[in-house]
Nucleic acid binder design. Structure first.
Length: 486
RNA sequence: GGCCCCAUCGUCUAGUGGACUAGGACAUCACUCUUUCAAGGUGAAAACGCGGGUUCAAUUCCCGCUGGGGCUACCA
């Protein structure tokens, strides 16, 4: 693929847009499209424009608009023009541009490129090339009369049959479609509202958009839009169609593949940097083997020729891996601050913040996302009320030293002048040595007693945090279960 | 159904007409570190969908098939 540096790129640089319809939350595919647009603008010193396509009054909601703006900001994809920031090409809500769209539709009608169509609604849908020529060839005066009598009539574009519409897609290469497949497309609905493809063209053109970078699902819209540009006598922008993001089963991304909205990842405790880095690598690859990119690095490395043609699967495991990396790269303070948002309310009620801060730090390299903290660290806030069956069998019931360890070590720990990590370690190590036990055999029973299972952060740090009373209490609870007769 | 698009390890991908014994990453497995689990380190296993061409040579170019996907609205 050639980098285009040709005539259609205006001297002020590229102008790209992300144009979501506010009918739901910002979803994964949309976020990736926004990211690539943003990257193209930033890497070429151009502008990234946000336009909200809210012409579907039934489905558009303010709440969705809110969610989309929030989502983009959270991802760090700031727009140069659009809602809340303004710009000289506004308004940036498509619904507010209706008059403009209709003005150009009217122009097309007057120029004979469009016509009032009174064919029954479903008659044209099947065979586009065959239809009643009546309405198409009617003189303008008659059409206007028709419209005056019945305003609920759509406007169609007059499309010559048997023509090939050809364009160079920056990602796909040459795309060719026959007008036989297109037909006389509707540009204004019988409700009087402009149709998506028409609004889109008018907006892109009047907003001076140079590159339309959008999902593959729009590929078949492009020839239709090109026809509209042609009839309007406008120079079309460059087009680039991004391959879609699919689920691991290659089907369209949907709820059953897990989270699809950006908000959901935010709520799981995914860092925006991780999500962006991950999204970047679906459909785009750098010239080298790098995988981790800061914003500046990705801006520097990005170019359209690194974009592939085939759909990519959204692999949540890799996202989690990226996120773990990004979590570990946070400073301790920043990590604590962020994970604190995910700490359950009961923990905050039960324990002081500095205790919680120390606890969460023990899990910094164990988390793949912040929301995991609850299921990993709960035993720092309450004693286990049961023990994992396997763990109990292997480590407690199946270990003749368990009872001894659970009785003697806590007793010794109580005698410590200061219940602190290094002293605990020293004591436990020398105890194990005296009894000719492996350190593991001394520690694992206590770990099970404390956590209910065989995994946890380092024992000595954990013990220090819990305090001598809690440690001895949990050990004797376990001991009581192990030796019910005592 | 019609039209269109796509096709390298399970997944994201690199790559080229001969340097490919096809590279990297996630996941997997093993080893290592180690008080367990992680994290870290080392290593292993793992792919050019099939069939025809073109060519001295094809994963790379062409055609067909198969598979997957998209579009097929007076939705956006």
């Amino acid at each position: 693929m050639e980098e285009d540096s040709n005539s259609s790129t205006s001297p002020k640089g590229v102008r790209v847009r992300f144009a979501p319809s506010p009918t739901g939350y910002l979803h994964t595919g949309g976020a990736r499209t926004a990211l690539f647009n943003w990257l193209l603008a930033r890497s070429r010193g151009g502008s990234f424009i946000l336009r909200i396509e809210d012409t579907d009054e039934e489905r558009s909601t303010d709440e969705s608009t809110r969610a989309i703006l929030d989502g983009l900001r959270w991802l760090g994809l700031e727009w140069d023009e659009g809602p809340e920031v303004g710009g000289e090409f506004g308004p940036y809500f498509q619904s507010e541009r209706k008059e403009l769209h209709l003005k150009f539709a009217d122009q097309l009608l007057k120029e004979g490129h469009a016509f009032v169509c009174d064919c029954p609604k479903d008659e044209r849908s099947d065979d586009k090339a065959k239809f009643d020529e009546n309405c198409r060839e009617r003189p303008l005066s008659e059409q206007l009369k028709l419209l005056a009598n019945n305003p609920a009539l759509p406007l169609r574009l007059k499309v010559e049959m048997g023509r090939d519409i050809v364009f160079q897609d920056l990602i796909r290469g040459e795309v060719r479609v026959s007008t036989d497949e297109i037909g006389d497309i509707v540009i204004v609905k019988s409700t009087g509202g402009p149709v998506y493809n028409f609004s889109c063209v008018v907006d892109d053109a009047t907003m001076d958009i140079t590159h339309v970078l959008r999902g593959d699902d729009h590929l078949s819209n492009t020839p239709k839009q090109l026809l509209i540009y042609e009839k309007l006598g406008w120079e079309p922008p460059q087009f680039a169609h991004l391959p879609l993001i699919v689920g691991m089963d290659r089907a369209r991304l949907s709820k059953r593949h897990g989270a699809t909205s950006i908000t959901a990842y935010r709520e799981l405790g995914i860092l925006p940097e991780a999500l962006v880095n991950f999204l970047l690598l679906i459909g785009w690859a750098p010239k080298d083997d790098r995988e981790e990119f800061t914003r500046d690095e990705m801006i520097a490395a990005f170019s359209l020729d690194g974009i592939g043609k085939s759909a990519g699967a959204f692999n949540t495991e890799k996202l989690f891996w990226f996120n773990g990396k990004y979590i570990r790269s946070l400073s301790d303070e920043e990590y604590q601050r962020q994970v604190f948002e995910f700490v359950p309310r009961e923990w905050k009620k039960a324990k002081r913040d500095d205790y919680i801060a120390k606890v969460v730090l023990l899990f910094k390299d164990r988390l793949t996302h912040f929301a995991e903290i609850e299921e990993l660290a709960w035993y720092f806030f309450r004693a286990p009320d049961d023990y994992n069956e396997e763990a109990w069998k292997d480590i407690m019931a199946g270990n003749e030293n368990a009872a001894l360890v659970l009785k003697e070590i806590p007793a010794a720990l109580k005698a410590l002048p200061e219940f602190e990590c290094e002293r605990i370690e020293k004591l436990v190590r020398s105890y194990a040595k005296d009894k000719k036990l492996k350190l593991k055999d001394a520690i694992q029973p206590m770990r099970v007693a404390i956590t209910g299972d065989r995994f946890s952060p380092g024992f000595f740090e954990m013990a220090e945090l819990l305090g001598v009373n809690e440690v001895t209490k949990r050990c004797s609870t376990a001991l009581a279960k192990l030796n019910p007769d005592d």
